[in-house]
Design a protein around this nucleic acid. Structure first.
Lengths: 237, 237
DNA sequence: CGAAGGTCGATTGTCGACAATTTAATCTTT
DNA sequence: AAAGATTAAATTGTCGACAATCGACCTTCG
């Protein structure tokens, strides 16, 4: 019995995840996918039963989510998915912008940005074809991949770790609104522009572009968020 | 009756808030104070006995520490305080610089930076007197307070949350080296310069100054870190 | 002598039960 | 019927016990 039967069957060793990890991933996914909505209360016993585990690993998972700021624990009173205000969203995109600017600076100043640039170019052409097909979910996935790659390519592991928190929240916000299907091509074009500026090694221009890129989408989303929330508040006072 | 009377941490057992919180604070403090050293293994049963709690809340605390990146959990094999490499420290100070630059930008662009500036000036004069007294620990405390205030004054709560992680690590690194007692006055002066530049609303100059300030201390510490580690490695191979 | 395999002790992972706390509902008193 | 006290139900917080897993040591066989 080899414990490492690797390279032939790439799927053999997925069983090794602890229950805590499994529950954590599940809950996190549910929150960022919008299945668990902000304000919703999480009851340990119910969730444990639903996931078929005991409360111990479930609690451990919830505590981690709490320290990540995705849920709020009120002692003896329950845990709820943290609500998102407009200010939260504005702050989120400001931080996101800060991190991506940092990443771009470091990529351009790095020794061999060529590989990174090539990888990102590929994502861009994939975006192009997805836009041609009008495939919104593909665009969203590629968008995520683009920015994840950007941050990871900074070479700063601590940034990547902090980015985990930030990108989770971005995904959550994205999933909770209905993206307009209008301008898929402009999305692809914008990302292409960013890559070009990085390739041109023009730090300030690239920083300017990404700042604007994120800033605009942040403003749009924050506004749409408020509008949408005004409606739901009105419906259920 | 203690199975481990060796008393790694001399800690009382007071039950006021949630045990998880209490344990979490205690362990976190022990790590950033350097009482628990990088590489040291944490044994749940021993720690639980020492703190007078059961393993459940202790595990919850450890999991949070793990998600904060302070400890490393190897399933079924143990938990260790995460080791710090030179690269970790360099990355840490790069991120710290990024965050403080962000904060300074937002403070200067905010409507009323006057209060913030006054608060920081007070810290500076306190630093001055502490330097006169040669009180190193006071300087360290004020230094922390200065930069915490700076980040908090950005008005971005998400940044403040992320700063929690970063500042913890900074404190850990600081506690693990022996700060030279030489140039206390220059520390006070440097901080004063930063405040002046913020007050002058010269964004680029202030950014330049804080970048240099953090960058230099980061380099110094990273180098000292490597030197110190070379020694301890040599002593215990 | 060395390597494959088995056993053992230590440690972590999980569970079900119990205690503490809060909220809501019910009862008492006026 | 209203205000306060009291109990009841639901939920979280904590605990001790048990199961699973890993590394080290030991045994055995080539």
């Amino acid at each position: 019995m080899q414990k490492n039967a690797s390279t032939v069957l790439g799927l053999a060793q997925i069983h090794n995840k602890s229950l805590r990890e499994h529950v954590l991933d599940t809950l996190r996914a549910a929150i960022v996918n919008g299945e668990l909505k902000p304000g919703q209360t999480l009851i340990e016993a119910d969730l444990a039963a639903e996931l078929g585990v005991s409360r111990a690993p479930l609690r451990e998972a919830i505590n981690i989510l709490s320290s990540d700021g995705l849920v709020e624990i009120m002692p003896y009173r329950g845990t709820t998915v943290k609500k998102l205000t407009r200010k939260d969203i504005e702050e989120l995109f400001a931080i996101r912008s800060m991190m991506e600017v940092f990443a771009i600076r470091h990529i351009i100043l790095s020794e061999s940005p060529a590989e990174v640039i090539n990888a990102m170019r590929e994502v861009c052409v994939a975006m192009q074809t997805a836009a041609d097909d009008g495939d919104l979910s593909a665009i969203n996935l590629l968008d995520r991949h683009f920015h994840d790659t950007l941050v990871a390519s900074s070479g700063n592991d601590l940034l990547l770790m902090l980015w985990g928190t930030v990108s989770m929240r971005v995904r959550q916000v994205m999933s909770l609104r209905n993206r307009k299907k209008g301008d898929l091509h402009s999305i692809a074009r914008n990302h292409h522009t960013i890559v070009d500026l990085i390739a041109g090694r023009d730090v300030e221009a690239a920083v300017q572009e990404i700042t604007q890129h994120i800033g605009i989408s942040g403003d749009v989303i924050a506004e749409a968020w408020e509008a949408q929330n005004a409606i739901t508040m009105e419906k259920a006072p």
